[in-house]
């Protein structure tokens, strides 16, 4: 499990406090007003935004100062999840080997992952020749081959239409279930929460509140959350 112990994240002149535990194989939605620090929270978990105070532990081991690439997690950003100059095979293959010396077995793995996300026969294509939805699927295929115990989504599907987006969320849900991973996803949409999340992390007023069961919270939101949901 991932533990945030009295963590303080500061970016410019705003800051977020967080103190919580992320359980294995659970799905968390991070909601809250724009600019409250949702992305900063995920960035800090991944190691892109420094934590000024507190510590982050994974199964009791301190990983506060670990480089992003060696943490037990993978993240999909809002954009630039694929290198446009590499093929889909190479992009996904980077999740296995960073020198891209892919063995036959690695390639088989990649092909299987591509198949799983519905991109059969797309391995040699360039990202630019794929639709937005297909690009998201390719990024998910990489998440799949990486097989990290934590998957973080910072609204990677924001640019997709509603139907496509729901399809992607369902796919994500299936994938994390298959790989026994935990999911932490930022969203603006209460319907996403109902669709996918077990628990909700509400970020507002400089605090990332500890996770609470999604259903109960959304049915009976406290004042601050109610004013956000409107």
């Amino acid at each position: 499990m991932l533990k945030l112990e009295r963590v303080l994240i500061t970016q410019g002149n705003f800051s977020v406090h967080a103190d919580m535990t992320i359980e294995p194989q659970k799905k968390y939605a991070v909601i809250g007003p724009s600019g409250a620090g949702k992305s900063s929270l995920l960035g800090a978990l991944c190691g892109f935004v420094p934590m000024v105070e507190g510590r982050l532990t994974w199964h009791g081991r301190d990983i506060t100062d670990d480089a992003p690439g060696v943490r037990p997690m993978t993240m999909l950003f809002q954009d630039n999840n694929l290198f446009p100059h590499l093929t889909i095979l190479q992009n996904v293959g980077l999740g296995l080997r960073r020198d891209l010396r892919l063995t036959a077995k690695d390639k088989e793995n990649v092909e299987r992952a591509l198949c799983r996300v519905g991109l059969t026969d797309m391995a040699q294509r360039m990202p630019g020749s794929l639709s937005g939805g297909q690009q998201s699927r390719a990024a998910l295929a990489r998440v799949l081959v990486q097989g990290c115990p934590l998957v973080l989504l910072d609204e990677p599907f924001a640019a997709l239409g509603p139907a496509l987006r729901n399809g992607m969320l369902d796919l994500v849900q299936q994938l994390v279930t298959e790989t026994n991973a935990s999911l932490i996803m930022v969203t603006h949409d209460p319907k996403d929460v109902a669709r996918i999340a077990d628990e909700v992390i509400f970020v507002a007023g400089g605090i990332a509140h500890a996770p609470q069961p999604a259903k109960a919270l959304m049915e009976n939101p406290p004042a601050e959350l109610r004013s956000y949901l409107g």
Binding site: G47, T74, R98
Partner: peptide
């Protein structure tokens, strides 16, 4: 692409080979 490269642990020669040079 720095963030994505960091997330994938692309540093040193692989970062040059697969990101900067192309």
């Amino acid at each position: 692409y720095g963030r994505l490269s960091q997330a994938l642990s692309l540093q040193g020669w692989p970062f040059w080979r697969w990101v900067i040079l192309p």
